[in-house]
Design a protein around this nucleic acid. Structure first.
Lengths: 119, 119
DNA sequence: GCTGGCCCTGACATCGGCGTCAAGGTTTAC
DNA sequence: GTAAACCTTGACGCCGATGTCAGGGCCAGC
């Protein structure tokens, strides 16, 4: 399939796919006319990338998962490097959530105080 | 005081202060030499801005608080517009936290699964 | 009078993940 | 045969809050 179709199937844009390629995450055979040609395995890679990006991963962080899939594994998550990224992300998320909750509570307090003072 | 001193007292940079000024959040008298001159009330304004930015507010969102302080209120939070921003931010934070927790749980699940498959 | 430290304005650089336009070649449908 | 819809590369735009450099004044101490 060509880039437009792949983009549509993966729920993204041709521009994004070229971007991933420029960063070495995906590759493409070229037809006689110079057009990129993809197959089902490429679709899997792109879907892996997209779902990780949607979760909040940076593009670079998807690389271990892509490499893992490319290495022939059924899942992009079963490689050591991928799991390491998972762990890091999990810790990052925990920190983020904790921080946000602290901010949230502080905000609630300040709002309550402001209402008391204004009322 | 001059811009360097204000920046230091407020825990920020001269560059940032000029940026706030460019966006109409603070003003400065000018000395005979063209240097910006600030006083204690300016320090209050900047501290208000900084603490809100540190919490995760966008610069524009600090404007109601600054206006509120400038209007002579003891706190930047007691004006209707400020409290509205507080409420919006609070809702935003709640949504953000909920989403992050969902992602976190999903991540935990996937990590556990990956470990099971790899092990 | 000179060096060093402050200040000024203006403007480009940063980071990430693309969007979007330019200027062309290719293929497809009628 | 021609217009529409695809594809190519290259390059600039975006967002926000600054950092940082360029090129220049102003002022204090020695």
């Amino acid at each position: 399939m060509r880039i437009g179709e792949l983009a549509e199937l993966a729920g993204t844009s041709a521009r994004a796919l070229r971007y991933y390629e420029a960063h070495g995450l995906i590759e493409a055979r070229r037809g006689a006319n110079g057009y990129r040609e993809y197959d089902e395995s490429d679709l899997r890679l792109v879907r892996e990338i997209r779902s990780l990006l949607d979760i909040g991963f940076a593009l670079e962080e998807t690389r271990p998962f892509v490499d893992c899939l490319r290495a022939g594994n059924d899942s992009g998550s079963v490689c050591a490097a991928s799991m390491e990224v998972y762990r890091r992300k999990l810790a990052e998320l925990d920190g983020c959530i904790t921080r946000l909750q602290a901010v949230r509570n502080r905000l609630r307090g300040e709002l309550a105080e402001a209402i008391a003072q204004a009322g």
